[in-house]
C-alpha cells in the first residue's frame, strides 16, 4: 500500500489549546517559531489583515503576502480571567486584551510578568512571540 499522506497540521501548535489544525495560513506557525508575528496583506488591493487571512473578500482573490507586526500598539481594553474554560485552568489568572496598531488590531494575551495594577487602557505595548507552559506557541503583549 502507498505511503501515509502528509498532513500539514502545523496550526495545532497555536495557543494553549488549538481548535484548528489545518489552514492556508499555516506559515503563521513557522513565523512564530522564527520569532515573528505576521499578518497578511492583499497584493491586489492592499487590504491589511490581522488575524491573517489567505483570501481577500474585496478582490475575491487569494493573492496575499505576509508582513511583520512591528512597533507599538495602544491597549484598547482587557480583562483578567479568574476562572477559565476547560483546557485553560492551569493558566489562571491570565489577561486577554486588544491592541490597536492603527491599520489593524491584535487580540491576544498580556504577558504574565505584567501585573494587573500596571495595566492601563491607552498604554503602549508590543507584540512578542511566546512559548506557553505546555510548549505550544502564541504571542503576548509586553510593556514598552
Amino acid at each position: 500500500m502507498g505511503k501515509k499522506k502528509e498532513v500539514d497540521d502545523r496550526f495545532k501548535k497555536f495557543g494553549t489549546v488549538s481548535f484548528t489544525s489545518i489552514t492556508k495560513t499555516n506559515d503563521f506557525i513557522d513565523f512564530l517559531e522564527g520569532g515573528k508575528v505576521m499578518g497578511t496583506r492583499c497584493k491586489d488591493c492592499g487590504l491589511v489583515f490581522f488575524p491573517p487571512r489567505a483570501d481577500c473578500y474585496q478582490c475575491l482573490a487569494s493573492n496575499v503576502e505576509w508582513f511583520e507586526v512591528s512597533g507599538k500598539g495602544k491597549l484598547l481594553t482587557y480583562s483578567e480571567l479568574k476562572f477559565a474554560p476547560v483546557g485553560f485552568q492551569d493558566d489562571v489568572p491570565y489577561c486577554i486584551a486588544l491592541l490597536d496598531y492603527g491599520k489593524y488590531k491584535i487580540f491576544g494575551r498580556i504577558a504574565k510578568d505584567v501585573p494587573e495594577n500596571e495595566i492601563e487602557v491607552g498604554m503602549e505595548m508590543k507584540t512578542v512571540v511566546n512559548k506557553t507552559s505546555n510548549e505550544q506557541l502564541n504571542y503576548v503583549f509586553q510593556k514598552v
Binding site: T16, L81, F107
Partner: peptide, 12 residues
C-alpha cells in the same frame, strides 16, 4: 482559529 486558543469565554 485566532481567539479561542488564548482561553476566551463570554464573561471575559
Amino acid at each position: 482559529q485566532w481567539e479561542s486558543p488564548f482561553g476566551t469565554m463570554m464573561p471575559a
